[in-house]
Amino acid sequence: MCGLVFPSDENVLIGLDRADDAGVYKITDEIALVQTVDFFTPIVDDPYWFGQIAAANALSDVYAMGGIPKTAMNLVAFPAKEMDLSVLRLIIQGGIDKIKEAGVVLIGGHSIVDKELKYGLSVTGIIHPDRVLAKKNLRPGDRLVLTKPLGTGIVNTAIKAALASPELTDRVTRLMAALNRDAARIMADFDISACTDVTGFGLLGHLAEMVCGSGTSVRVTSGQVPVIAEALGFANMGFVPAGAYHNKSFREYMVSYADSVPRSLQDVLFDPQTSGGLLISVSDIHAAALVEALKAGGIEDAAQIGEVIDGSEEKIWVV
């Protein structure tokens, strides 16, 4: 959208000029609004679970900024002629149950008739203006922590090919529907320099966004990255979504792999995630305690996956 001039004022703390997970607008010295919107086409067959996943995904952007979501509005596009309204009812019920779990209220929404079903939410939260967790603030010496395992895009492709077991399908569905609320609440007690959530660009794509313009580089210890084990096998069999290849070629110039990193793991590191985990940059002395607190809080897959290093060349070293 080069050349367009967006209106702004002095209360815009995070706007389109430094696009982040959500926009932040200061209201008083104590309170700023955190605003985000996200919607997409179904990624699972079950309408109730689709509603939950879409809501968890939309809420995640507020958590990734360090904010507390408060209100939500539905966004619905529905093929009213082709599909029974009971499907839409289940989707919205899924969304309602998920935002209830998050302590958020639904105060409105808008629906249109469309050929293709789409659902999502616009979410507004609050945050202290001095405690905004921007993504472009990496600090050399910090450790990187990831809170959900990777591989949902690859497994979803295998599900489409009817190759995933019901157990795996169930596990991945629950993973995508899991809120990042607890992870966000827990990290607030630690010395965090930057945070984002891992979604469509994959882990390395989102890490690249954090690295660009930061004046730092990062080293990812690939063997420690939490991964859905079956995703590696499916990647080897060719069930890699187009998005993973696009992500990879877009950021190729920034990434160097050690010879020991297999191709299937490289695929997983760029696999587009739906409602993925938080990617947190935490001071090295707090890193072990943060992971321990996350695990104690039920976020069992949380792990240290690398570190921020001095390096003005802004590279991602995968070892």
Partner: peptide, 15 residues
């Protein structure tokens, strides 16, 4: 007819 299919079919064959 896509690069994605070319890559994935190659992986499938090798597996």
């Amino acid at each position: 007819d896509t690069d994605t299919s070319k890559e994935n079919v190659s992986r499938a064959a090798e597996s």
